[in-house]
């Protein structure tokens, strides 16, 4: 067991975990932040996507012990204060989710991407969205919501 601190959404969390414990599991079980979902656990589905120093990363492909000197941002930071972020609002309005399991990962992916490219084309949105699997929607309304959120920020 190792003891270390993590900076998650601007708060310090003291963690006791084996090196092999995945960041996704530490966030959910030790930090009690269950908004990060665990899907495939091998980096394919994108459900566990979080931000590390502002860059998107699969939390299931990181060991929590690696993250000591980094800023971790999870979905809980996006609706801080109980108000949905712009992308969450657009997903709500455009019916961009059904069961919602994949949504947190999609929001985190595009929180990063829309900062890098604030006015993406539909093709660019679809390319980035290819890293997040959704088994309900068929993606059409997710794409519409992301374009809507990007448009609203213009």
């Amino acid at each position: 067991m190792l003891e270390f601190e993590l900076n998650v959404n601007g708060e310090r969390h003291s963690v006791r975990a084996e090196p092999r414990k995945l960041l996704s599991d530490v966030l959910r079980e030790d930090c009690r932040l269950t908004g990060t979902h665990v899907g495939c656990e091998h980096g394919v589905c994108g459900a566990c996507t979080v931000l590390i120093d502002g860059q998107p990363a699969r939390a299931c492909l990181l060991y929590a012990v690696q993250m000591q000197d980094h800023e971790i941002t999870t979905i809980e930071a996006i609706a801080a204060g109980g108000r949905p972020g712009a992308l969450q609002q657009a997903l709500h309005e455009a019916h961009g989710l059904q069961c919602g399991f994949c949504t947190a990962g999609i929001v985190m992916t595009f929180e990063a991407y829309l900062k890098e490219n604030p006015h993406p084309s539909e093709e660019e949105v679809r390319d980035v969205l290819s890293g997040n699997l959704c088994r309900c929607t068929g993606y059409q309304n997710i794409v519409a919501a992301i374009l809507k959120a990007a448009h609203a920020k213009a």
Binding site: G46, P56, R58, L61, T109, A112, Y113, G131, N132
Partner: peptide, 9 residues
């Protein structure tokens, strides 16, 4: 390569 989040890492 892979996807956006994979390329970032």
């Amino acid at each position: 390569i892979g996807h956006y989040a994979i390329r970032a890492r």
